[in-house]
């Protein structure tokens, strides 16, 4: 049995192999012999895509937390500016309005950065979703050729790309691998929705001072967001609505647009919820990655 030792991320799953005589929907042993190395390579690539998506999520979530904290702090300092004891600085002309202006500018920039962190989160999830959906390896043989090729897209509707459910490496079959990936990706999809809700609230911080309209759940937060969310299966293009599954499979009602004055405790709750990532069970995530890694003899870190 050939085991591919070179792990080449991004390499095409297509593979040219020696001619094969039969082309049936069920897998003959000669086809399986050719299918397996191709499937192994593909599966390894997809899992490393998943892991790299998870890493991107981690750094985007971290930077998002930092920007959200900075935004809230700038807002709170601006709110305190009026009553702040300025000491010797109080005689400077226009010191308070200037400071407020500066803090408000800071908030704008933090809001921008927060939004771009959110966009990175969306990108990370769509990468993971894509990896999850590309785990099957289909035979793809041109009729006039004797070369057997494999690809991610089915050429034959009888071919479901799972090699008949045989273990690809040691014990994991394609469907089982997909189930694990599904479990993992789902956590991030739910968490993304929850984070979207938080983003919406955080972007509104400081907006009442400027009389700008608060964005609603149905608005696109950045240009092309809905397309990206559709790739994550979090946006139904036909109905034109964003998924509202915020917590472990439970839907929530779309938040009402009341303009409530936020207090410090609520800010702290928002930031804590951001850090807590309640939908992501990191112990289970590590368990899944350890299991898959062991099967493929790869260490995902």
């Amino acid at each position: 049995m050939s085991t591919e030792s070179g792990d080449r991320p991004g390499s095409s799953p297509d593979q040219s192999v020696s001619p094969s005589s039969t082309r049936k929907a069920d897998y003959s042993s000669s086809v399986l012999r050719l299918w397996r190395p191709a499937a192994q390579r593909n599966l390894r690539n997809q899992w490393s895509n998943l892991v790299s998506g998870k890493l991107k999520w981690g750094s985007a979530s971290d930077s998002g937390r930092a920007h959200a904290t900075a935004l809230v702090n700038a807002y709170l300092s601006q709110r305190c500016m009026i009553s702040m004891e300025l000491g010797v600085l109080k005689d400077l002309a226009d010191i308070r309005p200037k400071a407020c202006q500066k803090l408000s500018k800071q908030q704008d920039s933090h809001r921008c950065k927060l939004l771009s962190s959110y966009a990175s989160l969306v990108a990370a999830v769509s990468q993971m979703v894509n990896a999850h959906e590309s785990m099957r390896c289909y035979r793809n043989q041109a009729t006039d050729s004797h070369i057997m090729k494999f690809s991610n897209t089915p050429a034959d509707k009888n071919d479901n790309g799972d090699g008949g459910g045989i273990p690809v490496f040691t014990f994991l079959s394609v469907p089982f691998s997909e189930n694990l990936a599904q479990e993992l990706v789902e956590m991030f999809q739910f968490e993304l929705t929850l984070k979207r809700l938080l983003i919406l609230e955080l972007l509104a911080v400081g907006c009442e001072e400027k009389d700008c309209d608060k964005m609603s759940w149905h608005d696109e937060l950045y240009l092309g967001e809905f397309e990206d969310l559709a790739l994550c299966h979090l946006y139904k293009t036909k109905a034109g609505e964003v998924s509202s599954t915020g917590l472990k499979g439970r839907h929530f009602g779309v938040p009402s647009e009341q303009k409530s004055k936020l207090n410090n405790a609520t800010f702290q709750v928002y930031l804590t919820t951001w850090i807590a990532e309640v939908n992501i069970d990191s112990r289970r995530v590590n368990e899944i990655l350890a299991l898959v890694g062991e099967d493929m003899n790869v260490c995902f870190r």
Partner: peptide
Amino acid sequence: ENFGALSCVDGIADAV
């Protein structure tokens, strides 16, 4: 009551 807009998500307080 500190959860503000998040309170529309059922069970969020317990989860956090």
